[in-house]
């Protein structure tokens, strides 16, 4: 029976095979899968961001449930009047009586709301420059946040870790010495204030070897990771080739091979015609 679950598996198999088809050549199947992936990802991220952050944590803090807010003042009544106007058009986002979750109104959240609107104004060329304010805040905040993180964990603690502990076993001492040589010579390779000749040149060459070993390890791990992902896709393709999934893998593989074959043949004859002309 062709249920919605079976349709889902057929679609998953189609997309997997379409991506694999790039190994043969860039083709319409691959392009379709690529565009679907980009579109679905963008849509999914937008919806998730909105419903996990913007609606509950921004609107929810600006217009919390009236059950928890003292709405006696005229200002609060006007504030919720604006909310009710939004609620006429977007009931799901602005439910009647405020958004449940926060005990009090936090007017400070008007600032992120305004910065968020500025960000969207990039779409309007005449006032697009306002987006720079929001971007400036993001860049400044990220730089400050990251500076602290890197300074503490990546510089201070990593420098501490290069100290050789001579009370340990000879293996750990040797390991420590190798780490300190690798760190210093690796850093010397990136020292460009002097020409890398003589002792500096020799030491930076040692640094290159350490860097090469590191790149080799990274490459090895990258290959390992990619193979793991390939195993994951193959596992699914094997599972979906069973009768419970109406032999999705076999059918779609056969169809794609035929269509790709015809496409390649057509492409070849078209390029042949162009050469003749």
């Amino acid at each position: 029976m062709f249920t919605i679950e079976v349709f889902g598996t057929w679609f998953a198999v189609f997309l997997t095979l379409a991506i694999f088809s790039y190994l043969y050549d860039d083709n319409p199947f691959y392009k379709a899968a690529e565009y679907i992936f980009v579109g679905v990802s963008a849509g999914y991220w937008t919806v998730t961001f909105f419903w996990t952050q913007v609606q509950p944590n921004l609107f929810g803090r600006l217009w919390p449930s009236l059950e928890t807010v003292n709405a006696d003042s005229i200002f609060i009544k006007i504030w919720y009047g604006i909310y009710n106007i939004f609620g006429i058009f977007l009931t799901g986002i602005f439910p009647k009586g405020g958004i449940v979750g926060h005990p009090e109104i936090r007017f400070i959240y008007i600032i992120p709301l305004i910065l968020g609107i500025f960000m969207l104004l990039r779409l309007v060329p005449s006032v697009g420059w306002l987006a720079r304010w929001a971007l400036a805040y993001i860049v400044g905040m990220a730089a400050g946040l990251r500076f602290y993180g890197f300074l503490n964990s990546d510089i201070m603690n990593q420098i501490k870790a290069t100290v050789v502990d001579f009370s340990g076993s000879w293996v750990s001492i040797l390991n420590g010495v190798i780490i300190i040589i690798g760190t210093l010579t690796g850093l010397l390779y990136f020292f460009f204030s002097r020409e890398q000749t003589g002792v500096l040149g020799k030491l930076s060459k040692v640094g290159i070897y350490f860097l090469m070993i590191s790149f080799g390890a990274s490459f090895g791990f990258a290959v390992m990771g990619r193979i793991s992902l390939l195993i994951g896709r193959f596992n699914d393709l094997i599972e979906f080739s069973s009768s419970s999934h109406n032999y999705a893998t076999f059918w779609l593989l056969a169809i794609m091979i035929i269509v790709l074959g015809a496409w390649a043949f057509q492409k070849k004859s078209e390029s042949g015609e162009e050469v003749t002309n």
Partner: peptide, 26 residues
């Protein structure tokens, strides 16, 4: 973590900032 991340995280493991690492599928 994923295999591709291992070389990035290993310095933290060596420095004792992270207690061990499960490197990829292995």
């Amino acid at each position: 973590c994923t295999s591709i991340q291992v070389t990035e995280v290993l310095p933290y493991v060596e420095a004792g900032q992270v207690k061990g690492i499960l490197a990829g599928m292995p």
